[in-house]
Design a protein around this nucleic acid. Structure first.
Lengths: 353, 353
DNA sequence: CTGAAAGCGCTAACAA
DNA sequence: TTGTTAGCGCTTTCAG
């Protein structure tokens, strides 16, 4: 008892602890920061003094000299441009409801948290917001940035490299840039989908692509097309969607009109696949018996869909963790070459195909 | 041109700007912080010097003296305990994929961003993590906390008040505590659901409640029950779920076994309602013709469900914004009474009831 | 209206 | 191994 630090008074400083322990500020600092070369007995004394005073280091003061704050920015770039979910006066941040994004955040938080680092959430969907992100970093509010872009022509990556800010992207930038990123072998994913549909015996296959200004969409499409070509199907109907359920439904409606005898569909993400399934069932097609559907991502949408979606799984949590890992490495070794890490997608067979 | 600040050199300080402008540090500081009492001409000179040097204030230095950092913690407490979505080596942060939580984040970000404040995302699902949150705040890494608890007996609110940390909760704490919060009139919501089902002509109504250690679940349930009682139905079968799709399905299965002739269901959130609908349809019941289903939240799940869910809408974004607003007010007026703001839910009629 | 000067709390040489 | 000292960059009295 009486370990209770005095309430009400201003929070104690190193100085206070030093006085109580009868040593110098420097020694307390060393103990607190776990620097060796401190007599074990004194260490103990200091630790006790820390407990008695209820001392907690002031991170602002620390950062001022170390030039590190111990937090990173998690930037969602290009979000909220179009939005199917109702307008309610807010520029609804659809992205935060996206199960895919949820996995990214989860992976990042899981990696960062044991290391005592926490992500600062930022949106960068306008020019102003992007400047805000840059200013934020320059003011030293975060040591670096993890960037998840939702569209191809995002100018933020370039801005970051030009400002010499440490950053790692989720997904390869549309134009080559000296910046680190993690990605998934989307073409291989497209191939997996094609092979599976063909192996299933599908004869009249079409695809619902993602927005084609996004490299990932292009890659999934091209990987799918070339694999189909290798199977002797040089032509595959393509409709472009925008990764939302609604766009998936609309795309499926169009495909059904133009190709009523379709028997296999590859959608570039699970949400669109879900939208496609809804339309198929409502128009009396059985899935997978009449039309097989395969998605991409393996997000929670794949599980909540009926039938559950066969899909191409991206190891999103691992990718996100790797992103964080790359950033921390870069922060520790400032003049290191940029790197990229590409993960392999896998086929997850469920009911829809 | 040549407005380009010198590259490579360490970032400029107030001192540098002062030298270029030919004034003192203090004056530059005043201009940068928009303090009046500065000669307009000098202001202009300083502004030019800022532009020339590419000056950006160092927030650590600033915080050291102002004792404010300009960021808040967004704490998700009690998350990730149980998780239906596959285990993949990660303690999957289910919460981030929850559309309800997505709306909360969106609302907070929307309110905070124009004010130049950004939330630091933290998870507090273990005792250690909770201490981490407290230490984080005490170290001055954030000025206060926005807390979203996912279960009733969360100890964090009390810890925060005892540590005198400014905080605002989403939802009333299970036990009374001198802490501000925003909430929704859940009982009224339950009543809206009951009235709608009765008005629809449902005769044999049951409910799938949320976890009963959460005040919100209790309130939705009691509001629903007492409204039903007022309609002459003193007894309503109740099955408890845990706010996930899967639990909604399981609950519906049980209800169907015990009460095969059921014709109306109120689920305490949309995800469970969605799970219930899946089971109903798979077992050959038409929704809403045979069984009417009504959810709660009006999350994106309500829209992606087929049929689309009739539901009780919580104005989550407004609630989240209000939460942020309350916190900022508290930060500006430290010795102000705690307050609570309670929002009214509304009935949104779609197809499921 | 402006400048000089005193710290905010901490780390990191450098001495001892 | 420990203590002394000099700042990190900024705000803010207090004089002028």
């Amino acid at each position: 008892m009486s370990e209770e630090p005095v309430r009400g008074s201003a929070s104690p400083t190193l100085e206070d602890v030093a006085r109580v322990a009868g040593v110098s500020r420097a020694t307390v600092s060393r103990v607190v920061n776990g620097v060796r070369n401190v007599d074990p007995e004194i260490q103990e004394t200091v630790r006790r003094a820390v407990a008695v005073t209820g001392y907690v280091p002031n991170n602002a003061a620390r950062s001022l000299v170390t030039r590190r704050v111990g937090s990173v920015a998690l930037v969602v770039s290009g979000a909220g441009e179009e939005d199917e979910i109702g307008e309610d006066g807010f520029s609804t941040r659809h992205i935060f409801g996206d199960p895919f994004f949820g996995r990214v955040v989860g992976g990042i938080v899981d990696y960062l948290r044991p290391r005592g680092i926490h992500p600062v959430l930022m949106l960068a969907d306008t020019g102003e917001a992007r400047s805000q992100v840059l200013a934020f970093l320059r003011q030293g509010n975060a040591d670096g940035a993890l960037l998840v872009s939702t569209h191809g022509e995002d100018p933020l990556p370039r801005m970051l490299t030009e400002a010499d800010q440490p950053a790692v992207l989720f997904a390869r930038p549309a134009r080559p840039l000296p910046i680190s990123y993690v990605d998934c072998a989307h073409q291989d994913g497209g191939k997996l989908a094609a092979d599976h549909l063909v192996a299933r015996g599908c004869e009249r296959v079409a695809t619902i692509a993602g927005p084609l200004d996004v490299p990932a969409s292009q890659d999934r499409l091209s990987g799918f097309q070339s694999a189909m070509a290798r199977h002797g199907r040089p032509y595959v109907p393509v409709v472009e969607g925008n990764f939302t359920i609604g766009s998936g439904s609309r795309a499926m409606e169009r495909l059904l009109v133009e190709h009523p005898d379709i028997d296999g569909v590859f959608a570039a993400n699970d949400l669109m696949a879900q939208g496609a399934v809804l339309v198929l069932r409502e128009s009396g097609h059985r899935v997978p018996d009449d039309v097989a559907v395969i998605g991409f991502d393996d997000s929670s949408a794949a599980l909540s869909c009926r039938p559950q979606l066969t899909t191409i799984r991206q190891p999103v949590e691992n990718m996100a963790a790797e992103m964080a890992s790359l950033l921390l490495t870069a922060l520790d070794q400032p003049d290191r070459r940029v790197t990229s890490v590409v993960f392999e997608p896998t086929l997850v067979v469920r009911q829809s195909a």
